[in-house]
Nucleic acid binder design. Sequence first.
DNA 1: CTTGCATTTTTTTTT
DNA 2: AAAATGCAAG
Length: 827
Amino acid sequence: MTFVLDPRDPSTPPPGGSFQDALLEGLNPQQRQAVLYRGPALLIIAGAGSGKTSVLTRRIAGLLATREAWPSQILAITFTNKAAAEMRERVQQLVGRQQAEGMWISTFHSACVRILRREAENFGFTKSFTIYDSADSKALIKRIIKELEADTFGITVSGAMNKISKLKNELSDVESYARGANFNDPGEVMFLQIFREYTKRLQSANAFDFDDLIGQTVYLFRAFPHVAALYQRRFRHILVDEYQDTNHAQYALIQELTRPVNQGDLPLDLQGKGHLDPASLTVVGDSDQSIYAFRGADIRNIVEFERDFPNSTTILLEQNYRSTQNILDAANSVISNNFDRKDKKLFTTIGSGEKIVGFTGYSGHDEAQFVADEITKLHDSGMAYKEIAVFYRTNAQTRALEDIFIRSALPYRVLGGTKFYERAEIKDAMSYLITVANPLDPMALRRIMNVPKRGIGPATEAALQNFADNNQTTLRDAMRNAQALGLGPKVTGAITGLALILDDVQATVDVPEGVAQAKPSDILKTLLDRTGFIEALRATRDPQDEARAENVEELLSVTKEFQKNNPDGTLLDFLTEVSLVAAADDLDDTSGTVSLMTLHTAKGLEYEAVFLTGIEEDLLPHRMSAGEPGGPAEERRLFYVGITRARQRLYLSLAMTRAQFGEVNVAMPSRYLQEIPPELIDWKQSPGDATSRNGTQPRALNARRGAFGAEGSLGTGASGFNGGFGGGFTGSGSGYENAGGPSATALARAARNAAKPKTEWANKITGTVRDNGDLTLAAGDRIRHVDFGDGRVSAVTGEGTKRVAEVHFDTAGRKRLLIKVAPIEKI
DNA sequence: CTTGCATTTTTTTTT
DNA sequence: AAAATGCAAG
C-alpha cells in the first residue's frame, strides 16, 4: 500500500515502513493508545499542545486505511470551519484524497444545517430556510417587544434574547417552559408571550436561529425515528473535538447519533443490512480550557463522560509539544488556583526557554507602543509576522493597538471583531440574496425594501404588513398586490417594481429539476444592477459611502471566489457558508501579518510569540464575570488558554490607566499575575515601576492625580498594590528601551503622555487615520513626532502610501514609521 | 419620507 | 469614542 505523510511533520518516517509504523511514528505511548483504541467510547483528556489534532487525524486515517470504515461512515466535529479544513487536509495527506472523499468533517452548526436542509420538510420548513444570526434574532425580538409593549415589564431585548438562547440550549421549547412557568408573575407571562411569538415568526419565516440549528436537529431525530435511524446507521465513528465546550443540545445530539439503530425504523431495503450497533464515539477535551459557559457550554458533559458511557476508556495526554517549560510553569501555576479540577500538569522536554516578558504601560496606547516595538524587534531578529499574535479580552481593545500598528507600519490583521459580513451595506446586499432564496422571510425583505431609497417608509411598510396579515399571505405577496392598497402611484410603482425584480431573479433560482440554477455571483450582479444599489451609494454626499460601495463590490468578488472553489455551489450553499463563518475562519496563513484577536478566538491556535494585553482587574477577569457563579474561574481558564498558545516567547502587558466609554480610568493589575511565580517574569517595567517613580512620572499622569481625590488616587492605589504583591513586581527598572538608559525612556514617556500640543499638524489627525499627504522624507531629515519628540531619519523604504521611515529619535530610540499616517512633521 | 442634530447608551466573550 | 435612538424641521 502506498501512502503519503505530511513532509512538514517532523514525525514523518523514512519511506519503506509499514502503514502502522507510519501512523504511530513519533507518538508517545498514550497517543498511540488513542490512535489504536477500538471500542464503544473513548475519552481523550488532552492538555494544551499535547498533539490531539495529530492523534485525531491519525485515528481517522487508521480507520480508513484498514478499511474498518468507509469515509462516509465518519463524522468528525471541530470547533471552527478552519479546524475542519485542516483536519480534512491532514487526513487526506495520510491516506490520499480519494480515500478520504465523503467524510463529514465540520462544526456542529454546519453538520446540522446539512442535515436540516435535507430533512426540514419533515416538519414544516423548506430546504431553503434562512439562518438568523444574532443580529437578526435581536432585530426580530426587538420588533416583538415593541409590538407587545413588553418593555414596560422591564424586559430588555438582550435580556429576552439571552433567556431564549439559554432555554434553547437546554432543549426547552415554549410549551415545556410554559409548564413550569409562574403565571402570577406578569413579567414571566409576558416573556412567555415573546418566546411564543418569536418561535411562531421563525417558523413562518422559514428560518432557524443559531441555537435552533442544533436544537431542531435533536427535535427532528427524536420526533422522526425513521430519519434518526438513517444517520445512526450511517455514522459508525463519531469524533468530537473541544468536547468541554459542548452545550446540552450538542450533548443530546451526540446521544441521539450514538443510539443503537432500531431495525424497524429503517427503510425496507436497508433492513437487516449493515451495522446495527451504536456508533463508536471519541471525544477530546480539556476542562481547563472550557471558556464558553456563557453560551451554554456545560463542563459536566466531559466530567461525567465516564458515567454516560460506562464502557468507555479514558486516556490522558499530558506531554506538551508546543511551549517552553517557563511558559508551561506559568500556565500550570495559574490554573492550579482553580479548585474542583482534576490535577493535571503539563510538561515538556523542550527546555525552559526565555523568561516571560512583562510590561506596564501608563495607558493603553503606551502598552500598544511596547507591543509594537517588541514585535519589531522580534521581526528584526528573524521571526515572521505571521508567527506573532496579540490577544485581548474585549474587542474594544483593538483601537489603541490598531492605531499604533498603523503608525508603526506593522502589517496586522484583526480576526473577528466588526466582521465584514456585519457591515450594514453587506447585510443589505446579502438580504437581497436571502429574499430570493427564501421568499417567506420578511426580515430580509424589510431590510431591503427601502434600500436603496425608494420612498417606502415605515408607514408604507406597516400598510403592506397589515394587508399580508389580513389576507393570510406573505409580505412578499402583499408587495405583488400593492395596487390593492390604494397608496400613491409613486410608492405603488416602487413596490411593484421591486417585487418584479425579485420575482424575475427568483425564477432563475427556482428552476425545474435538471435545469441549471443561476450562479450566486450572477444573481447578486443582476440584483445590484437592476436595483441601482451601488450607483445609489456613489451618488450620495457621505464620503463613507464610497467605501461602502467598494465593500459591496468586494462581496461580488467573494461570490466569484466562492464559485471558483465550489463549481457546483448553489445560492443556498453560499448563504450557508457566509452564515456560519467563525472569527478564526478568516485566518490566512499566507498573509504574512501579525494576528490580533480575542482570547476566545485564540482557542486552538498557536504562535511562536504571543502578547497577552490588558492583564488588568475588570478586564481579566472582566467586570461582568464577577457576578456569575464560576465567573472568575472561567476567566482564569481564559488566561490559561492565552498563555498556552505561545511556543517560544510570551509577553504579558497591562496599563495603569485605560480609556473606556470615552473617559480614562485607573486600572489595577490582574489578580492572576500574582499566580505566576515572580522568577518566571522579566519585568521591563513592573506595575511598581510605573507608579512609584515620582520624580520621572509623566506630566499628564501627575495632572490627572488631582482629579481622583485622595481615596482613588494613583498613589494610594499603587502603594496598596505594591504591598499586596510583596515586592514581586520589582523589575529591572531600566525601562524597556535600552537605547538611551532610564532617564531617556522616562523623558520619552513623559513626552508621550503629555497633553498633545495643539499645533496645526496635530489637528490634522482626522477620523481614525491621519494623512500627511505626499510628505517626502529622506535620510538625514530631522522630524518631530507627537509622542517621541525629535529625531533623525536614517532610512526610507517602500513605495507610495506604504513608504516607511526608520527614525532615530533623540530620546525614544529607533522606530519605524509609516510616513503617510504617522503623527510627524519635518523640521 | 428624509435629513440633520441632540441625546442616550454601550462592551464581555461567539456559533 | 462610537453607535444607536429620538425628535424636529424640511
